[in-house]
Design a protein around this nucleic acid. Structure first.
Lengths: 226, 226
DNA sequence: TAGATTGTTAATCGATTAACAATC
DNA sequence: TAGATTGTTAATCGATTAACAATC
């Protein structure tokens, strides 16, 4: 029996559907058609129906989708009906910012520990979560059923630390380090590369400037007679 | 004359090429073929050549690509030969973490100001950059040629603040707020949605668990005779 | 010159959109 | 029942990969 795997383009869109449905729910909207939703989200209705039907038929002909039901179902698909224990490796600015972000818990992601190599930070705690020395990692991961590790450490240390984490039982890495981690295939890696994100912005700014400069140059050429 | 616009799939890959080439450069590698690079980066050589040829012929038949030259050229394409002034709106944990991140300056992104509504924070400074009251935004943007604003404020305020920023001259928004900003087409928006990123991780964890459970179930069925 | 590797055209693959029968 | 809207198949579009002539 063959297992159809869902394309990553579809997975990327699911959280956005989830967000829009959550907002509709907050506004007490009971039902919505793919057409209405498509107008709000600026995608095609066809795409919404195709995407959802990868997972099942959640709608009803002639009616559309029940907002609450669809919201719950997408939540399940995304695994938000489960709880995940997270640790943060690296208690620098970004690590601390993540630890302070309260939104994750609402979705079932619980930050259980923060680790650093700097002994000065040890004992401090952020929102009740203690900062510990990395020496404790192995024991902590095993004892606390840690599934996800957020990596916010310097680039040079990242490959080694990531390999350790995996060896000790972590199944997914949320990687904020600007490098590619080469880990076994069954380990999930989700990259958040902030500098790359900024570069895309600057590309677009520059491309826009160049397009405008070109347009201006053409206008001048035309004026000066052809 | 017709202006070919580069697909966003290509743009997304450019920073990664840039990163790999930077590392090669650090290791004093002088030349590289698309084939060698493709093996390092785990993409096809064909894709590398296609991507680059959107912007020009940077290589040489029989030789490959000069690492330093290609690095510099991709930098120019990404607009990294220019300087950008950034402000951060929202001096919470994430805003402060961004302000502390020194890597951005290396790429030409200069954080010029941090703004908040909380008067208690005013006067504090992070790496020499003062936190100011949002009242000063309009004047500051105009006087400092600010092109990019990083948005790290609560969701409820985001649409209004974004509209103001654009009105006062900001051309690009680096949006950390979990919402879609509806801004004029000529304003660049780059989203960093951390919760969505975590959701993709949890999707993958769950999908993997389910696939394994299924496999186990099948194994049992076979054992019990068919 | 011979070998290597690009730049580019053609073929393939996958994702998006359109269309419509099924059905609530 | 008639109208609306889904689920799904077919058509289109775009992106990736393969192939190879050009050329260093």
């Amino acid at each position: 029996m063959y297992e159809k795997t869902i394309s990553s383009a579809v997975i990327k869109r699911l959280p956005r559907y989830y967000r829009y449905l959550g907002e509709l729910l907050e506004n007490d909207v009971v039902r919505i058609s793919s057409k209405e939703l498509s107008e709000k989200m600026q995608v095609t209705a066809s795409q919404i129906r195709q995407d959802l039907n990868n997972f099942g038929g959640f709608g009803q002909q002639g009616y559309g989708y029940n907002v609450e039901y669809l919201y719950t179902e997408i939540g399940k698909i995304l695994g938000l009906d489960q709880k995940y224990n997270i640790i943060i490796i690296g208690a620098g600015n970004l690590g601390q910012a993540l630890a302070n972000y309260t939104d994750f818990e609402r979705r079932g992601f619980y930050i259980k520990g923060i680790f650093d190599v700097n002994p000065r930070l040890i004992g401090m705690s952020i929102r009740g979560v203690e900062i510990r020395l990395v020496d404790e990692l192995e024991r902590f991961i095993k004892e606390n059923n840690v599934q996800i590790a957020a990596l916010t450490i310097p680039k040079t240390k990242a490959p080694e630390v990531a390999a350790d984490l995996v060896r000790w039982g972590v199944r997914a890495i949320w990687n904020f380090v600007p490098t590619d981690l080469n880990l076994p295939n069954d380990i999930m890696v989700e990259n958040v590369h902030l500098t790359e994100s900024l570069m895309r912005l600057s590309y677009n700014l520059k491309a826009k400037d160049e397009a405008e400069a070109k347009k201006r140059a053409e206008a001048v050429r035309e004026e000066s007679g052809v």
